[in-house]
């Protein structure tokens, strides 16, 4: 009898506050497992954002730093420049990274900052109760887009991975999803590969993780996973946009 799946040491044993079926929990697990498998948990320093994952500093079993909204990449830059030998990552939502924090993420990539970013894209502001995010899809309803996002009023949603893939310092850019076991396993591979880019000192790496928000989408958890498949993946195609080899 061998254990093939158990709770990773990369997470603390604190129960998360996330809503039932929210995929933040899955992504936290993947990040925790990746750090343990790469043997970097003991030298990891994570930066938590403001948003649903604002309490991530209670969940990752390593030194953590709570950043101001959107500023995690700058905070991580300060940490990495002081401790270049440590493994430094940011964990951010789409309100944090794709809205108030766009300058910080673009410039972290532009500098080739040797940090890794996990970007959770659930197309909405979760913590504050369902407002429209820069990643909210056209037609998708939100409390600040009651009739659904209209392109004429507030443009089309931002494709962060494609945008960052144009920046030389971004040595790893991949978009994954966590709505099925198969996609979750692929997501973990991408996270590990992204972390390795930092550990090999090559430069900036980011994994955009399409994620659900059952509560603010107004769906059950299984329905949300289906909605992600049918609506988000077509607009946000999964795949790798940049790997170190082609990023020379």
């Amino acid at each position: 009898m061998t254990i093939v799946f158990e709770r990773t040491k990369g997470l603390t044993d604190v129960e998360t506050h996330y809503c039932p079926g929210c995929t933040h929990g899955i992504i936290h697990r993947l990040v925790g497992e990746a750090m343990v498998e790469l043997g970097v948990l003991d030298k990891a320093i994570g930066v938590a954002p403001v948003g649903c994952s604002v309490f991530a500093y209670n969940y990752f079993n390593c030194d953590m730093h709570e950043a101001a909204h959107g500023r995690a990449p700058a905070v991580a830059t300060g940490i990495k420049r002081v401790h270049p030998e440590n493994f430094v990552f940011t964990y951010q939502g789409d309100g944090d990274l794709a809205s108030i924090g766009t300058a910080e993420i673009v410039h972290a990539a532009h500098r080739g900052e040797k940090i890794s970013t996990i970007f959770v894209n659930n197309a909405i502001y979760g913590m504050t109760g369902g407002q429209m995010a820069p990643t909210t899809l056209v037609g998708q309803k939100a409390t600040t887009a009651p009739g659904g996002r209209s392109e004429e009023h507030s443009g089309r949603p931002i494709k962060i991975s494609e945008m960052l893939a144009t920046i030389h310092g971004a040595k790893f850019v991949e978009r994954v999803a966590v709505n099925t076991p198969a996609n979750i396993r692929k997501a973990k591979k991408a996270i590990i590969e992204c972390f390795k880019v930092q550990l090999e000192g090559k430069g900036f790496g980011i994994v955009e993780v399409l994620s659900t928000c059952p509560t603010n989408w107004g769906m059950t958890a299984p329905e949300a996973m289906k909605w992600l498949e049918d609506n988000m993946i077509p607009y946000y195609p999964l795949g790798n946009f940049r790997r170190p080899e082609e990023a020379e």
Binding site: I45, V47, H65, A67, A68, R71, A74, V75, A76, T77, G78, I79, R81, V82, H83, E104
Partner: peptide, 9 residues
């Protein structure tokens, strides 16, 4: 915010 990170480190 870089100062905030470095000071925390």
């Amino acid at each position: 915010n870089m100062v905030y990170g470095a000071a925390g480190a």
